[in-house]
Design a protein around this nucleic acid. Structure first.
Length: 490
DNA sequence: AAAAAAC
């Protein structure tokens, strides 16, 4: 087993023995004090030892490996123009193209006063400029796996002299089915090398990967995995599926949000929401895997420049995107994987800044909410929007169930009955059958097969009681057992 | 259930 490093409490960048050229670049980036992961990882990486790092994005992880990589390669850096003098010595693999781009920008910045060359390759864009750059020779290569293998096949990338390998967001890469690609790449690398594996979680698969490809790694863990930053407020708003678009508009206006990242579960949903927001006067654009790489990059850049108020994204943006001090993240949909929630809200409250994570939860997403609260080991705060909740003194309703839940982006409905209508503009859209009151009338219904605990049943009864005649009540009251961790019965 | 990634 590997041991865990101790955090030096008040380290400075000066004490790592980094080259003045690197320190100069660090200073230019405005950094003075290493983050905990940097304080722990930099000395270990400099020592040449393998690392198994558990760190969320936003903890300064990229610099924690980039800086010592640059330092270690410095003695080998050549000022020669000959490509042969610039073989790939460090390879950094990331799951998404945007993350590769971000990491590359960091490496570039940290190495700018050194003769080291770096390049980034990923899919979705022309291979030729990448090939040309690779042929000129680079010591540090940042890549997504598929395109890297493409370059290997084209013989534009030679990995025979790689001494340092970084697997960034390794859990994500496995989730995305990159294991075969990773294995192929790893087989091309010299056995004698230093390997750094970073992962948000240490699942069984990650441990297996580490056992296979790392040698006596030192474990570095800054924040317990699955934990969320304490400087981020986390609030959930219970919103009927069809009211989510309006709710987002309202949150943006209420809070005067100028730069908000909004997560959807589907590509189509993200596009639709972006369009709906635009109709409501919010400058918005979507970023997801069905948009061209050019569109993705332009959306991201415009967002960073502050030209876009709402960037509506799928989980392509859940990890790794480094948008400095993003104040607010909204979950339009709750993610299917609770871990993705942690990654999504990791886009805010970065580098010690405070942030707000706002989540919309429709009745059919309560299971996801319960999973999230179980993972982060605390309930989210329950917020309420200032829209009127319709008063319904309800007697009996037919038990007919909706065949479809409308979760796939069919979230736009015509304005509801005037009395008690929402105070926000509602975009025009297709009709959904489910009446708005459904949510208020129907407490959480577990599937018939699911076993319900006594507390949950009691909570349901309590919430059903409280729903009658409810208006503008805090959702916590409306929802009784809302957010209670649910015992899973398997 | 969905998303991501090579052409």
């Amino acid at each position: 087993m590997s041991d865990t490093a101790v955090t030096p409490s008040n380290a400075t960048f000066d004490q790592f023995g980094l080259s003045p050229d690197i320190l100069k670049a660090i200073a230019e980036q405005g950094y003075t004090t290493p983050t905990p992961i940097q304080a722990q990882a930099i000395p270990v990486v400099l020592s040449g030892r393998d690392v198994m790092g558990a760190a969320q994005t936003g903890t300064g992880k990229t610099a924690s490996f980039s800086l010592p990589i640059i330092q270690r390669l410095l003695p080998l850096a050549s000022t020669s123009a000959s490509p042969a003098r610039h073989p790939v010595r460090a390879l950094i693999l990331t799951p998404t193209r945007e993350l590769a781009d971000q990491v590359a920008a960091n490496v570039q910045a940290y190495a700018k006063h050194t003769p080291l060359r770096s390049a980034v390759v990923f899919g979705g864009v022309d291979m030729n400029p990448q090939s040309a750059e690779l042929r000129r020779g680079v010591e540090v290569l940042i890549a997504t796996p598929g395109r890297l293998l493409d370059h290997v096949q084209q013989k534009t990338a030679n990995l025979g002299q790689v001494q340092m390998l970084v697997l960034d967001e390794a859990d994500r890469m496995l989730d995305m089915g990159f294991l075969p690609d990773l294995q192929r790449i790893l087989n091309l690398l010299p056995k004698e090398r230093q390997t750094l594996l970073f992962s948000a979680t240490f699942s069984g698969e990650i441990k297996k990967l580490a056992a296979t490809y790392l040698r006596n790694p030192q474990t570095i863990e800054v924040a317990r995995s699955n934990s969320t930053a304490t400087n981020v407020t986390q609030t959930v708003y219970e919103v009927p599926e069809g009211d989510k678009t309006g709710a987002v508009v309202q949150l943006i206006r209420e809070r005067s949000l100028k730069q908000v990242l909004v997560f959807c579960n589907s590509k189509i949903g993200a596009s639709r929401l972006a369009r709906s927001l635009e109709k409501s006067g919010v400058v918005a654009t979507a970023i997801h895997g069905d948009r061209t790489q050019n569109e993705r990059m332009q959306a991201l850049e415009a967002f960073k420049r502050g030209e876009i108020e709402a960037l509506v994204a799928t989980d392509v943006a859940a990890r790794g995107l480094d948008i400095v001090e993003l104040p607010t993240v909204i979950n339009f949909d709750l993610p299917f994987n609770a871990e993705d929630y942690v990654h999504r809200i990791g886009r805010t409250g970065r580098a010690g800044a405070s942030g707000d994570a706002l989540s919309l939860c429709s009745p059919n997403e309560r299971k996801q909410l319960a999973d999230i609260e179980k993972l982060i080991k605390r309930p989210l705060d329950v917020g309420h929007l200032t829209v009127d909740v319709p008063v319904r003194h309800h007697e009996e309703r037919s038990p007919r169930r909706e065949g479809r839940d409308g979760r796939d982006g069919r979230d736009e409905r015509p304005a509801r009955r005037r009395s008690g209508g929402p105070s926000f503009d509602r975009p025009h859209g297709s009709h959904r059958q489910q009446p708005i009151d459904d949510f208020f009338l129907k407490p959480y219904e577990p599937s018939p097969s699911a076993h319900k605990s006594d507390e949950a049943a009691a909570a349901d009864a309590a919430s059903a009681q409280q729903q009658k005649g409810a208006t503008k009540q805090p959702l916590a009251a409306l929802l009784g057992g809302f957010g209670m961790p649910r015992k899973s019965s398997s």
